[in-house]
């Protein structure tokens, strides 16, 4: 009763599922998830379940993949707080470019957020608005102490990161003399979210 082609079509499903499982890039995996959805709809049709196939195509392929692309895009991001005037200097753009290269290897995006002065920048890191801050002043040192020797260390930047894993990645892969990396643990406050 069951025809031969049914077996072949059903065998396509684990094939594409394996392709999906072994894909590391999240965006590529989403496209393959869409392919898996199309093949799954075909399998359901072959087995005679028209309603399940319609649901798979509408929800599984279209809605889920679209929502997941938006979700992955907004969660796989490194928000870096910088000072307002910093963006124009030459060494800084070089630093940002190499940072972006390291981050892209881990499928992350870099988002720059500008702050008017150092205090608000520091505040943003403590308030968890950004994942890391990058400026010429050290995070741990007080502000006035640094300004005395400001001209001497003009070319070095200090990057403070509050996410442990990001710090580990950057420490092993980012080899630049222009910046120093420090890990800052921001205390868990009572409101967890």
């Amino acid at each position: 009763m069951i025809d031969k082609y049914v077996y072949i079509i059903v065998a396509l499903l684990p094939l594409s599922a394996l392709m999906l499982v072994f894909q590391t890039n999240p965006y590529h995996a989403l496209v393959i998830r869409a392919i898996l959805g199309a093949i799954a709809a075909l399998v359901y049709i072959v087995l005679g379940a028209a309603d399940v196939a319609l649901t798979e195509a509408l929800v599984g392929t279209m809605l889920a993949v679209t929502l997941y692309v938006v979700a992955v895009r907004s969660s796989l991001v490194l928000r870096l707080g910088i000072l307002k005037g910093d963006g124009k200097t030459n060494s800084f753009t070089e630093l940002i470019a190499s940072l972006r290269k390291v981050i892209n290897r881990h499928y992350l995006r870099l988002e720059l957020i500008e702050y008017p002065d150092f205090l608000t920048l520091k505040q943003a890191l403590v308030e968890r608005e950004v994942h890391a801050i990058c400026s010429q002043q050290d995070y741990s040192e007080p502000q006035n102490q640094n300004s005395a020797t400001g001209i001497e260390i003009e070319q070095t930047y200090h990057t403070a990161i509050r996410v442990r894993r990001l710090f580990e990645i950057l420490q092993t892969e980012l080899t630049l003399p222009e910046t120093t990396l420090t890990y800052v643990s921001v205390f868990n406050r009572e409101d967890k979210h």
């Binding site: 496209v31 869409a34 049709i45 028209a50 309603d51 319609l54 392929t61 279209m62 993949v65 679209t66």
Partner: peptide
Amino acid sequence: GVVAVIILCVGNAGLMLL
């Protein structure tokens, strides 16, 4: 057949969105 035509439409539309 009806489901196939709907999937043909929707699959293409979803592809453009993606």
